[in-house]
């Protein structure tokens, strides 16, 4: 990303004042161009006309975020597959566990035992693949924004919303299967015990929409949390690097300060971003497991 920014900075050196929120937004939002620094790949030939379903306009064109989401998916499958192959080779007794396998195994075991099973409880084995896939998929999508010319698909609200909807469907399905139709409906239609029928009916009328909102609030918070964290992190990075461009060209002295300061700060924020990439992936997976566990044990 830095390379990309500096590249543009060189192009825009004469128009330093133009560097601003427009450019920052440009790096966050989706586009049908892959900016690879020295050249860019135009994705517009892959665009398709929006499909109209009712009043909805659905544009399934392949965009920058789709490409990086695809890369994240491939990376997830490839790393997991490598780890699996290493595990398999180990099983054949050919080779002692290596670095990658050890790391992946540690993640796998942690996600399985301490995230999925610990929060979902007995019968949680069915959800282990989902939780682990969620973690790695989101992790790679997050981290891809930190490599040069990369983009963070998870800084797009629709991507995080898509993941949250999957989580929502799984959570509610798990609740329905664990509680049965009657038990599940009780999580929506709730009447406080010890009320006379009339008051109960009134409470039901008022509380049902609120319970539905409460149900939707969880995946909504999931989606917004991931989106906001990834967007904010990139904004901070971009703003710090933007300082270099803006103040670097005033005088030599201010230039040195303006380059060194934000660069060091940017480095720090970069490490912070890596941490946040892991943290947010973990939180998304963890909370999905927590919500599945909560609704399965609701009565």
């Amino acid at each position: 990303m830095d390379g990309l920014l500096l590249q543009e900075a060189a192009q825009d050196a004469a128009h330093a004042e133009e560097w601003g929120t427009d450019v920052m937004i440009h790096h966050i939002v989706d586009a049908d161009v892959l900016d690879l620094g020295f050249f860019s790949v135009d994705l517009s030939p892959l665009s398709v006309a929006p499909i109209h379903i009712g009043g909805l306009e659905i544009d399934v064109s392949i965009t920058k975020h789709v490409v990086f989401l695809f890369i994240a998916a491939v990376l997830t499958v490839v790393t997991m597959w490598l780890a699996a192959r290493a595990a398999h080779r180990l099983e054949q007794g050919e080779k002692a566990p290596g670095g990658l396998l050890n790391a992946m195994e540690a993640f796998y075991l942690f996600l399985r035992d301490d995230v999925a099973m610990a929060n979902i409880g007995s019968g949680g084995e069915r959800f282990v693949p989902l939780v682990i896939t969620l973690f790695f998929f989101i992790l790679f999508a997050n981290l891809l924004g930190l490599v040069p010319f990369g983009a963070t698909a998870t800084s797009n609200i629709m991507v995080t919303a898509g993941l949250a909807v999957i989580a929502f469907i799984v959570i509610e399905t798990a609740g329905y299967r664990a509680l049965g139709a009657k038990g599940y409906l009780r999580t929506i239609f709730y009447v406080p015990p010890g009320l006379n029928p009339w008051m109960g009916a009134v409470m039901l009328l008022i509380m049902t929409p609120v319970e539905l909102i409460g149900k939707l609030a969880k995946p909504f918070a999931l989606a917004v949390r991931l989106f906001a964290n990834m967007t904010a992190g990139h904004f901070v990075l971009l703003a710090l690097l933007g300082l270099i461009i803006t103040y670097g060209s005033f005088t030599t002295a201010s230039g040195i300060v303006a380059v060194l300061g934000p660069l060091l700060l940017g480095l720090f924020v970069m490490f912070l971003e890596i941490f946040i990439a892991f943290l947010q992936a973990f939180i998304f997976a963890m909370l999905t497991a927590v919500f599945i566990g909560l609704i399965r044990h609701a009565h």
């Binding site: 969880k218 909370l287 927590v290």
Partner: peptide
């Protein structure tokens, strides 16, 4: 604490939205 935060993260949104 992560579990607790997650469990109760929806309350604010729920109040505002309702």
């Amino acid at each position: 604490s992560v579990v607790q935060v997650g469990r109760h993260a929806g309350h604010g949104i729920t109040i505002a939205a309702s």
